[in-house]
Design a protein around this nucleic acid. Structure first.
Length: 570
DNA sequence: AGATTATGCTTCC
DNA sequence: TGGAAGCCCTAATC
């Protein structure tokens, strides 16, 4: 009943079709042949309402009526004309939420696996707790290199898997800590309980998630998206950050004062054709080298100590295409993995870096959001691609022509989200567990939630899905703690900390309480280099600031309302 | 409450 | 080949 009110676009649509009655007929045929029985029955119930609707546009009612008798059905045909699928613009079905369940457009390929013939709801890859795995042949080269590397690696991987604890319980949250959506997260490697975060505006956040109130944001480090962070291995008070403003900054974490290590746009803004952005960055700790890649396909090497460039920029991905990420092999830091918008991930030896000199080129179906070597042995590769597949290569010195596995997973990101990246659990000695946020929602007790998935990359099995009824937004940014069983999540402008569930389950009250406590909390949010303090930061960010000016309680009320709204869907 | 907007890759001509 | 349209589960704002 109520759903009818939603079909707002029909009048525009009908006006467009007015001229061609044959077009109308086609649509009727389609709609009547559709097997959506529920819909049709519903339609029969409420002709009065329909008539009332159409009185506004009498001309439109007239034209389809001669054809109405043709299929032996009464009146409803006019109604089905009103229902236009927002995805394919055809009639007879509708895409969109029905309660907490999203109904796909049947005319389009599956939104999850991208194959035609079924929708997400019936996708074979959407089996509960087990995602689809596309097997690839396991090849072994049996070269001497193979042998040497295997023997090196074997000693490093213990046979007994340590107990795996999923941090699935929301511990605390820092609601709207950032001014825009969170784009990257990093645990401080030595100061335990400190989480570093970056956002789309270039804001750098530092938060002690145990003391809770110890938090600070620096807004002068970058002027736009903070894409990557790395704490200096030799000086843990120094943070390197890479940004879409085209700079690498070297920031003192205590003062927020930074100096640029690299500026790829020294002449300022001269249009998008010349503006260079930096997404990929990593540190070769052995050589004290900072590796940086821009949005035109080039890599730059920087000497961390002398703060100077080493050599010339080298093209490592298709000219003009963005390099989305860089990662140095943890076991052999000279071996580098790059991922790019040119649909490739590539392995390089940074000691002899030249164009077209990659050791391997890993083909993907679409843009590669990220690529990581496994955290201990470094002999596996995990990539996230916008074709909704996580790919795993089990052995980098084997045959890399095709991945060892492709795991179908929903992370086909909407342009307004931070790209999803599957990341290894650094604590998992077996190098199989990975974490990644999920794009499409699932119906959890009547609420459409977007969980954070723990995936066993060796089998494709979904080990755990982490979610909380209070978090209704998508969580594309996730980071696992290097030592503790803690997960940090960036979701919209907020960040959250998760821990394994222990003892008695008070989840519902406790998490809400924690989150609420913190939003209420009187923690002073300093801004070291800021022009204003948090309560008067008005520039450029428009609307949200009006609310900020109000008392904190107002903010909380606002948040709580949002939550209630989410729950009321039940 | 509904319209609007930020925003980036893909596709189409 | 390049530029413009268009896009399925956003999130926040007025």
């Amino acid at each position: 009943m109520a759903t009818r009110a939603r079909f707002v676009h029909n009048s525009r649509r009908r006006r467009g079709d007015e001229e061609s009655s044959s077009d109308d007929e086609q649509q009727q045929v389609e709609s009547s042949s559709s097997d959506d029985n529920e819909e049709e029955e519903e339609e029969e119930e409420g002709p009065g309402q329909v008539v009332a609707d159409e009185e506004e546009e009498p001309a439109a009612v007239e034209s389809p009526s001669p054809a109405a008798g043709r299929n032996g059905r009464k009146g409803p045909i006019t109604i089905s004309l009103k229902k236009v699928c927002k995805v394919c613009k055809k009639t007879g079905h509708e895409a969109g939420f029905k309660g907490a369940v999203y109904i796909d457009c049947p005319m389009k390929p599956c939104f999850l696996c991208k194959m035609p013939g079924h929708t997400t709801l019936t996708c074979p890859h959407r089996v509960a707790m087990e995602h689809g795995v596309i097997p690839a042949p396991r090849r072994n080269t049996n070269t001497s290199l193979d042998y040497v590397f295997q023997s090196q690696v074997k000693g490093k991987i213990p046979m007994v898997k340590p107990q795996f604890l999923v941090p699935n319980q929301l511990e605390c949250g820092n609601i709207k800590f950032h001014q825009r959506r969170v784009t990257c997260l990093e645990f401080h490697p030595t100061k335990n309980n400190v989480l570093l975060s970056g956002d789309k505006k270039g804001l750098l956040g530092i938060w002690d998630y145990v003391k809770l109130h110890e938090k600070i944001t620096y807004d002068s480090v970058h002027s736009c998206i903070l894409n990557s962070m790395k704490v200096d291995a030799a000086n843990d008070g120094v943070l390197y950050t890479a940004s879409s403003d085209g700079t690498i900054s070297c920031t003192d974490l205590d003062t927020g004062l930074g100096s640029p290590l690299l500026n790829l746009n020294p002449d300022g803004w001269n249009g998008p054709n010349t503006w260079r952005m930096i997404y990929g960055m990593d540190l070769n700790t052995e050589k004290s080298l900072l590796l940086v890649a821009d949005s035109f396909g080039f890599i730059y090497l920087l000497d961390r100590r002398s703060k100077t460039r080493v050599g010339q920029p080298i093209l490592i991905h298709k000219k003009g295409s963005k390099v989305t990420g860089l990662h140095c092999n943890p076991a052999q830091p000279d071996i580098l993995l790059s991922s790019g918008n040119d649909h490739y991930a590539r392995i390089w030896d940074t000691r002899k870096l030249e164009p077209n000199s990659s050791l391997a080129s890993l083909a993907h179906g679409r843009v590669v959001n990220s690529g990581y070597f496994s955290p201990r042995s470094g002999n596996k590769i995990l990539t996230t691609c916008q074709d909704n597949r996580i790919r795993v290569w089990d052995y980098i010195f084997g045959n890399l022509e095709s991945p060892s596995r492709e795991i179908v997973h929903s992370h086909d990101f909407n342009r307004h989200l931070t790209p999803f990246k599957a990341e290894w659990d650094p604590k998992d000695y077996s190098e199989s567990v990975a974490v990644i946020g999920r794009y499409i929602s699932e119906n959890y007790n009547g609420a459409a939630l977007h969980p954070i998935d723990f995936i066993d990359t060796s089998s494709g099995k979904l080990l755990a899905e982490v979610m909380d009824p209070d978090i209704t937004t998508i969580s594309p940014v996730n980071k696992l703690h290097p030592q503790d069983d803690i997960l940090a999540t960036g979701s919209s402008r907020s960040i959250f900390i998760w821990k394994p569930k222990t003892g008695v389950d008070h989840t519902e009250e406790r998490t809400s309480q924690k989150v609420k406590e913190y939003v209420y909390g009187s923690g002073s949010q300093k801004k070291a280099n800021g022009k204003h303090d948090n309560s008067s930061d008005d520039d450029s960010d428009g609307g949200c600031d009006g609310k900020k000016k109000k008392a904190k309680k107002t903010r909380f009320t606002h948040t709580a309302k949002g939550k209630e709204k989410g729950k009321s869907k039940v």
